[in-house]
Amino acid sequence: MEKSRKWRWGVNRWWVLAFIILTVIATNRFAPVQQVIAVAPENLTKSPIITLPLVGGLYLTNTEVAMILMDLIILVIALVVKSRVKEYTLIAKGFTGALEMLIEVLYNLAQSTAGKWAKKIFPLFATILIVVLFANLLKLIPGFESIGFVEEVEHAGYTAVSLGGNWFNVTTPEVAEGGAVVVPFLRGLSTDLNFTLALALISVIMTQVIGVQAQGFGYFSKFFNVRTLFSRPIFGVMDLFTSLLEAISEFAKIISFTFRLFGNMFAGMVLMAIISVMVPVFAPSAIMLFELFIGLIQAFVFGMLTLVFMAMATQGHAEA
């Protein structure tokens, strides 16, 4: 009790102070500018890489670069685990041990929720969780959303100051027309609606697949319930309507999944962009920590919801 009250001069506070001073100097030297906030990810290529027949031109977006980075990291981790898992040890240790613990916790969670279907559901659930987790956390790496091509735009922008060679610093003063903006190489994967929509589609579609696997094609009677339509006319009609509502709720789930993750992450991005212009000193660090927390929570929520919906699909509709 007494000890904790004693004032001790740690070394960390000096680091923090030094970085704050550095930030003050840096923001005076190079004034931060508000980056372009757009919902759509920016294309990095002027012309489409490939043109698919039905889909049309396919551009390389900056979120896809982040996606490739994430894939590489996951691949490396998977390879490490694969190589290390051969040497079986009773006691988990090191990096693999930590990953093992994560997997074990997730598996226990799946087992307690889904029971005997855990083995089937677990890979999807865990992959969604891991992918969302990495996508959310990668966003926090410095350089995301700040380094990129300098693009001349017609509308309002900033002036590009040469740093030598092909390097430019986009900074104040603001110009009303013909300014320059940054098109970042990397942008948080979760701030791309394609990513969240893809995950939501996979989650919802795989829920139906698992429902069919668990209950056969009787599963779809949940969405179009005509079983009681003729035996009990009035309640039958009501049952039909509620089952239609169930069907609609599946589509609502897609939208809900998509925009929950996207909204959280995009809001974080916007917050970061605005805060780092308005209060460039110290405040972004706190926001960064908050973003870390939000990223973890959202990954967990996405995974948990997938798990719960899948478990519900296996258990079937409660008959009245």
């Binding site: 919902v39 929950r260 959202q298």
Partner: peptide, 24 residues
Amino acid sequence: ILGIAFSEAIAIYCLVVSFLLLLV
């Protein structure tokens, strides 16, 4: 925390709508 995330999602939808109105 799970419950907070769910109820917060509602607020986030509003935020998304707001952003869409502003930006899109």
